[in-house]
């Protein structure tokens, strides 16, 4: 279907590339999240896109309509988190990924995936896609890996395609599990510029939606920022895991209060809606 020059797709026509290398470990639940909202996701090893590996398994990035970088510890994250995956992706696929983003196809990076998007220069990209990272996800203030429920307020004023179905100002619960999630930049006006551009998507808050320090902000991130998008709104990176909040029964407090479904579904539904309004 074509409408006003924009390609309209039925959900099942949306092919999502869930990209992985060794150490990526949230690909199955990320795959499940896209499947749950009716898309056609596929787990693809980076080697399948670069032609390294069996010929029969070869895939091409341009055949996909959306791209997801799942969480995990790609290549072990023994240097800066996400750096090795980003370097490998860039050297073999740099142009394809850039074209994908410029074409405004949806790209999401969750946890380690967010770290990879920052390392790739695709986020925050306030001044356009950058060849070198302009921000970093630094070691948590606690110095420890932190696995705990986190509550996020949707701060997007409308640009981010992944939160349109959440409602501005609404609080959702996506759990966090990371050791390096503190968003930082050398640019002192970094947060202001993100705000000006409507690039701040999620902030850590307490369960009742108010600003709060640790442990509600588990890493000490600047201005409690948990997730950001690029200026065009088609690339989202966030530390917490929406794919771990698909049904009501993985919520940390479901035996105390009951929701109909997990908060995370809305992220994936929003993306589907942006492609098939």
């Amino acid at each position: 279907m074509e409408n006003n020059g924009v390609k309209r797709m039925r959900p099942e026509e949306i092919k999502v590339c869930v990209l992985r290398i060794e150490g990526t470990n949230c690909e199955e639940e990320t795959h499940r999240a896209f499947a749950a909202v009716g898309c056609s996701p596929e787990m693809v090893h980076l080697n399948q896109l670069t032609g390294h590996g069996a010929a029969s398994a070869r895939r091409s990035l341009e055949d996909y309509d959306a791209l997801a970088f799942p969480g995990g510890f790609s290549a072990g994250d023994y240097v800066r988190a996400g750096a090795i995956f980003a370097a490998r992706a860039k050297s073999a696929l740099g142009k394809e990924i850039k074209d994908f983003v410029v074409a405004e196809k949806p790209v999401i990076g969750i946890c380690n995936g967010f770290q990879i998007l920052v390392e790739l220069g695709l986020l925050p990209a306030t001044d356009g896609i950058s060849d070198v990272p302009t921000a970093a996800l630094f070691t948590n203030d606690s110095g420890r890996f932190e696995c705990r429920p986190t509550y996020l307020r949707n701060e997007s004023r409308g640009k981010c395609i992944f939160t349109k179905k959440i409602g501005r100002g609404r609080t959702v619960m996506f759990p966090s599990a990371h050791a390096e999630g503190k968003l930082m930049s050398a640019d002192r006006r970094f947060v202001d510029r993100l705000e000006d551009n409507d690039q701040v998507v999620f902030r850590y808050v307490s369960p009742d939606g108010r600003s709060a320090g640790y442990p509600w902000n588990p890493n000490g991130s600047a201005s409690d920022i948990a997730g950001i998008c690029n200026p065009a709104g088609n690339v989202l990176g966030l530390m917490p895991h929406p794919e771990r909040a698909l049904d009501a029964y993985t919520a940390p407090d479901w035996t105390r209060r009951h929701k109909k479904e997990g908060d995370g579904l809305a992220v994936f539904r929003s993306m589907v809606e942006s492609l098939s309004p």
Binding site: C26, R144, F145, H241, E243, Y249, T255
Partner: peptide, 23 residues
Amino acid sequence: AIRQYDHDVRAATVLRPLVGESN
């Protein structure tokens, strides 16, 4: 110790080692 272990990865954990209100 519990918070240093990822007890949620694979998104299939229904009851965790700590229960009650979040945090």
